[in-house]
Design a protein around this nucleic acid. Structure first.
Length: 229
DNA sequence: GCGACAG
DNA sequence: ATCTTGTCGC
């Protein structure tokens, strides 16, 4: 069941947020392969902030998974109700992201977030949180390894190495461009890590970062400029 | 206790 | 995330 509704008891402080994480983290589904790469839709999600006025702009961009052409776009502007705390990013971004998703008429398909899924201290990063709340298949692609360890993947595009929390592989450092710093992929909800990496490669025919997040990044920035000035 | 720390 | 010019390269 797909729902873009923000829970009524959305937390506003760290303690409540951690309690919410502990309750929802048990609902993450990791035994579904997820949509096959190149089929259906892939939706990029990103947000931009104006720290001066506590404003946040979210953008969702639906792409045709086969051609990477834009199918539909939507934005939303809201108030930041949670400060940045590493590990609690979801509480800062999700409210406005849900509003943007609500404005979509197309099926989002697989949602690609700018950040982590289960590669998270509590195995419940932004992508997993969004997945559990909506029921959508989600994954995360981050630009930094957060607190996790990894060995540099081989130079060729497509090379990967495990992203480790101790001895547990929580994600993968994936080389999307030859000889360029890898991106950090993790499963969010209802997708496999292997499948998430396959999607990540299909989304990066030209740049290090996936087309989905590049598109969403550009859109949320312009939405923020429009809302601010 | 202190520093690090996705965006 | 954000503050920020010019510049090298395809």
């Amino acid at each position: 069941m797909i729902s873009y509704t923000l829970p009524a008891d959305w937390p506003t402080d760290e303690k409540a947020a951690r309690a919410v994480q502990d309750e929802l983290r048990t609902r993450v589904v990791v035994d579904e392969p997820g949509p096959p790469p190149g089929t259906g839709h892939v939706t990029g999600v990103d947000v931009a902030y104006d720290d001066e006025r506590d404003i946040v702009a979210a953008a969702v961009v639906v792409l045709d998974a086969a051609t990477l052409d834009v199918v539909e776009e939507a934005t939303a502007v809201g108030t930041v109700a949670f400060s940045y705390v590493p590990g609690l990013l979801a509480f800062r971004e999700i409210p406005t992201v849900l509003t943007a998703l609500r404005r979509l008429t197309a099926d989002p398909g697989l949602v690609v977030c700018d950040g982590y899924g289960v590669a998270h201290p509590r195995r419940f990063g932004l992508a997993s949180h969004l997945g559990v709340l909506t029921g959508l298949a989600t994954m995360g692609i981050a630009k930094n390894p957060f607190t996790f360890a990894y060995e540099a993947p081989a130079a060729p595009r497509g090379s990967a190495s495990p992203l480790l929390d101790g001895t547990e592989e929580v994600g993968r450092a994936l080389r999307t461009r030859e000889g360029v710093k890898p991106v950090f992929v993790s499963a969010g909800h209802r997708v496999t890590l292997d499948n998430a990496c396959a999607h990540a490669l299909r989304l990066t025919p030209r740049y290090r970062l996936p087309e989905s997040t590049r598109r969403a990044d550009a859109l949320c920035r312009s939405a923020l400029r429009e809302a601010t000035g």
